[in-house]
C-alpha cells in the first residue's frame, strides 16, 4: 500500500508540473501570440470575449504573474478553461462534448486491440513453431503500413466501392441523436470500419510482444511444474500467460500516451468527431485557449491512464508490492 501511495504522490507532482507548464507556456511564447490574436480578432468577437481571453492570459492586465497563476488554479477547480476563439463557446463545454467520441472510438478500440492482440499472442506463443506463426508477418504488414494510407484505402474499398460499411462520419445523418435504438445502432455501424482499421494497424505489436514473452515464460520451471502436476493444458497456458502479460501491461500504459496522435489520424481519415479533429482545427485557427484546454485534458488523461495501469500492475505482480529496502 505504501508503494502505491508513493506512486500516487509522484502522479500528483507530475500533474502539478504539467498544469503549471500549461499556464506558463503561452506566456513564454515569443512575439506575444495572445496580443496578436486579440488584434486579429477585434471586430469579430464581442468585447466580453476579448475580455475573457485577456483575463485568461493576463494581457492588458496589471496583476502580477503570481496572482494570475492563482486565478488560473481557481478557475481550473471550477472547470473554467476559458473561451474558444473560433467556436465562441467555453473550452470546457466544447471539450466535454467531443471527448466522448474519442474515448468511445479510440479508447475502446485501443483496449480491444490490447485484449485481442494479447490473447492471440498467448496462443501463438504456446503453439510456437507451428503454422499459426504465419499470422505474424501478416499482422506486421498491416502495422507497418502508414495508418493514413491503410485507413484511406479501407474507406475507399469497403465503404465507397463495396458499400459493406457506411461512409464517413459517426452516425446516420437521418437518425436523431439521443437514447433511441436507431441512433445507437447507427453508432455501432459507423464505428465498425474505424475500429477494424485501428485493430489491424495496432494489434501486431501486442501480439508479437505477448508471443515472445510467452516463449520465454514457457521455458520457466513453474510452467514445467504445472505440466508435472497433471494440470489440464488450458490451466498450464493460463499460468504462463498470467506471467507473460506483465510487460504488456506496462507497455499499455505507454501506448495510452500515443492514443492522442492516433486519434488525430483516425478522426481525420474517417471524418469522425472527437478531440483529434478538435486539436487539428484549433491548431489551424490558432485557437490558443482551446489548444491549452486540449493539452490539459490530454495530459490528465494520460496521467490517469498511467495511474490505472500502475494500480493494475501492482495488483497483477505481487513482487512490486514489496518496497525496496533503504
Amino acid at each position: 500500500m505504501r508503494v502505491l501511495l508513493r506512486r500516487f504522490g509522484v502522479y500528483l507532482l507530475t500533474a502539478w508540473v504539467a498544469i503549471t507548464a500549461n499556464f506558463f507556456l503561452p506566456r513564454l511564447m515569443p512575439g506575444n501570440p495572445i496580443a496578436s490574436l486579440i488584434g486579429k480578432l477585434t471586430g469579430q468577437v464581442t468585447p466580453q470575449e476579448v475580455r475573457s481571453i485577456q483575463l485568461q492570459f493576463g494581457v492588458g492586465l496589471h496583476s502580477s504573474i503570481w496572482q494570475q497563476y492563482w486565478t488560473y488554479w481557481v478557475n481550473l477547480f471550477h472547470g473554467q478553461l476559458g473561451t474558444s476563439i473560433t467556436l465562441s463557446a467555453s473550452v470546457s463545454s466544447v471539450l466535454s462534448s467531443q471527448i466522448y467520441w474519442t474515448l468511445g472510438l479510440i479508447g475502446v478500440a485501443t483496449v480491444l486491440s490490447f485484449a485481442l492482440g494479447t490473447a492471440l499472442g498467448a496462443i501463438l506463443g504456446w503453439t510456437r513453431g507451428s503454422r499459426t506463426d504465419s499470422l505474424i508477418p501478416i499482422a506486421t504488414f498491416f502495422q507497418a503500413t502508414p495508418y493514413f494510407f491503410l485507413g484511406s484505402v479501407m474507406v475507399l474499398v469497403f465503404a465507397n466501392n463495396l458499400h459493406w460499411f457506411p461512409d464517413l462520419g459517426a452516425y446516420d445523418p437521418n437518425a436523431t441523436p439521443g437514447w433511441n435504438w436507431g441512433f445507437i445502432a447507427s453508432l455501432f455501424r459507423y464505428a465498425q470500419l474505424p475500429v477494424i482499421s485501428i485493430l489491424l494497424s495496432s494489434m501486431a505489436g501486442w501480439m508479437l510482444g505477448m508471443r515472445n514473452m510467452m516463449v520465454t515464460v514457457i521455458g520457466e520451471d513453474f510452467v514445467l511444474m504445472a505440466v508435472a502436476k497433471g494440470l489440464p493444458r488450458r490451466r498450464v497456458i493460463w499460468h504462463a500467460a498470467r506471467n507473460a502479460v506483465l510487460p504488456s501491461v506496462a507497455n499499455f500504459a505507454l501506448a495510452i500516451g500515443l492514443l492522442v496522435s492516433g486519434a488525430l489520424l483516425v478522426e481525420l481519415v474517417f471524418n469522425y468527431p472527437g478531440v483529434g479533429n478538435l486539436l487539428l482545427n484549433a491548431t489551424l485557427n490558432e485557437d490558443y485557449p482551446l489548444l491549452q484546454g486540449i493539452f490539459l485534458v490530454i495530459t490528465l488523461t494520460v496521467l490517469g491512464a498511467n495511474l490505472i495501469a500502475d494500480v493494475l500492475y501492482y495488483w497483477l505482480d505481487p513482487r512490486t508490492r514489496t518496497p525496496v529496502a533503504q
Binding site: 513453474f222 498470467r242 506471467n243
Partner: peptide, 18 residues
C-alpha cells in the same frame, strides 16, 4: 502428481511468482 511428483532444484522458479 497423484502417482509421480517432482521437486526441482530451484524452488523459487518452480513456484508461480504471482
Amino acid at each position: 502428481w497423484r502417482h509421480v511428483s517432482v521437486v526441482l532444484q530451484s524452488a523459487l522458479s518452480a513456484l508461480d511468482p504471482v
